[in-house]
Nucleic acid binder design. Structure first.
Lengths: 195, 195
DNA sequence: CGGATGACAGATTTCAATATTTGTCATTCA
DNA sequence: TGAATGACAAATATTGAAATCTGTCATCCG
């Protein structure tokens, strides 16, 4: 885990490892430095504060968790189907993370909660993708909405139970799939243009 | 605050007072007993555990917070308007509680989180009211839904951002009203029977 | 010179001793 | 007799001293 000069990339990787091992409460900057075989002062050359380092790791994790969504949003299937696919993929990605490694998921849930800016930025990205799908639906005549961006945010809010980590404990309930289907259908029906 | 014999009612009132003064972390059964001028053993004659006492107080608080909703649900205006009124009243009640006395609201948010049974029961009551509104809409031909109870739960889930206490911090944001309107309209449109 | 270091002050966390709380129950009291 | 008490064990919380951590910076090294 050590090479020529210390890079931000290497620090981020080491931080991830330390967070996985010790959890969010006990992971320290000193631990990260020790894992890299450098002094903790060197870490502060690349990240101004511990909070900034954590935010950077969190941002990476969120991006990695949701890679593939943009592709769905950019597809060319009818908007209602595309929206359903996108929401399903979002829920599936979140749930997989939460159920595969609950401890790591809990760790990142704590990190996400530490920085409002990271959340806002990330939600912004996702809302943008939703906006594009809805705008596409309006263009093809299947959706009706005065402002696509407002509708997109409404869809994101309405499906919160299936992507907001505070609900993670409910994602292994037996009827969660049915609940998702019900909300998903309700939301898509709500966007549909009256014939 | 003291009369002849010790009643469950008096204990609940004293517990509320102690919770308001000390908060959920420091309020003890001994405090409650002291407030009543009795020994803590007497409290255990009426409530089997501290958790049961807290759950009882929580149930009362939830009931008090949402009184008036049942009346709206039982009204005779068209279902779409009635649903909008009901959701608006629910959000308004929650938000008033949260903004009027944030500390007390935080206290009860902690208590609510302590007991899944209390939440489930309470959500059940609200979902029942929603089911009645939606069933009414189906009867009058303004709503379409295969199963009113499933649709009701979907509506409850979709509007979570405006009644789940975990979102309380967002309820003073300037654009929260607009966000509520957007979700509310989306959900009602989703229930509407195609003409 | 640019990157790395480690000593340092102030803030935060840990840990173990101490004190309080929860829940029980034999006894008291009216 | 039925409600209330208070002593008690086990679990939990508090406290304060010691250790660790965060963030800075004068200094060092290649």
């Amino acid at each position: 885990m050590s090479a020529g000069t210390l890079t931000a990339e290497a620090i981020l990787a080491a931080t991830e490892e330390v967070l996985r091992r010790y959890g969010p409460a006990k992971a320290t900057v000193v631990d990260v430095a020790r894992a890299l075989g450098v002094s903790h002062g060197s870490v502060y050359r690349h990240f101004p504060t511990k909070a900034a380092l954590r935010a950077a790791v969190t941002r990476r994790w969120l991006e990695r968790t949701h890679e593939g969504l943009a592709e769905i949003a950019a597809g060319d299937s009818p908007a209602p189907a595309r929206l359903r696919d996108w929401l399903t993929a979002l829920f599936a990605a979140k749930r997989r993370k939460a159920l595969d490694d609950p401890e790591l998921f809990a760790t990142y849930s704590v990190l996400v909660g530490e920085d409002d800016g990271v959340i806002a930025e990330h939600v912004g990205h996702l809302a943008e993708q939703l906006t594009r799908i809805i705008a596409g639906g309006i263009a093809e005549g299947t959706f009706a909405a005065a402002e696509p961006a407002v509708a997109a945010r409404a869809v994101f809010d309405a499906t919160g139970r299936f992507h907001n980590p505070v609900y993670a404990a409910e994602w292994s309930a037996p009827d969660i799939e049915a609940a998702f289907e019900a909300v998903c259908s309700l939301v898509i029906a709500g966007l549909r243009a009256p014939r």
